[in-house]
């Protein structure tokens, strides 16, 4: 967190509107993400997750990737979170607070996560401290589409096969027989 703030304050254009929005959204996302992993209410966690995902979509717009942002909202918030809520319902998790959801190994997990964050932060600050993202104009959907259906056609086909496999796989796993 402090590393993040340090990085932001090092930027001389701190008060450009984009950066202001970035800061607000980033704080919102971090706060919500922390709630996702700490709240003892499963439904609340799913709702906090919506905030994180929405924040990510906003970041994508800041980065000029409108199509990804829209897809993020449609797929993640529209489908994935709804799926989670269905999952909560089907597994009959308690709608209220449930103190058993958090494990007892908090210290171990925090140490591991902190270690990861430290390593990544050092590496990132060390490597990319001078790079700036300049967004002149948003990426057109047409460009993305052209690229998917020409250059990246093979990964695209692979993903479609993967989705089919996942579809069949989850039906096989979850059906009652």
């Amino acid at each position: 967190m402090s590393a993040l703030l340090a990085a932001v304050s090092a930027d001389s254009d701190l008060f450009v509107a984009q950066n202001v929005f970035f800061g607000i959204i980033a704080l919102l996302m971090i706060g919500s993400a922390l709630k996702v992993v700490t709240t003892s209410n499963v439904v609340h966690a799913a709702l906090w997750l919506v905030l994180v995902l929405g924040g990510a979509a906003a970041q994508f717009i800041l980065l000029g990737s409108e199509f990804v942002a829209v897809t993020q909202v449609l797929v993640y918030i529209g489908a994935v979170v709804v799926l989670f809520l269905f999952g909560v319902m089907l597994t009959r998790a308690s709608m209220g607070d449930d103190e058993t959801v958090a494990g007892e190994k908090r210290v171990m997990a925090a140490v591991v996560a902190g270690l990861l964050l430290a390593v990544m932060s050092v590496a990132l600050i060390d490597t990319f401290s001078d790079d700036r993202v300049v967004i002149d104009e948003p990426q057109l959907v047409g460009t993305v589409a052209d690229s998917i259906f020409s250059q990246y056609i093979v990964p695209f086909e692979a993903v479609s096969v993967l989705l089919l496999a996942a579809l069949i796989g989850s039906i096989v796993v979850a059906r009652k027989d």
């Binding site: 993040l4 090092a10 990132l124 401290s129």
Partner: peptide
């Protein structure tokens, strides 16, 4: 915008997810 602000945000989210 700095590239690092996005990368560090992502790193932080990643670690929260790991936790």
């Amino acid at each position: 915008m700095l590239l690092n602000q996005f990368l560090l945000l992502a790193a932080l989210l990643f670690c929260i997810g790991v936790y």
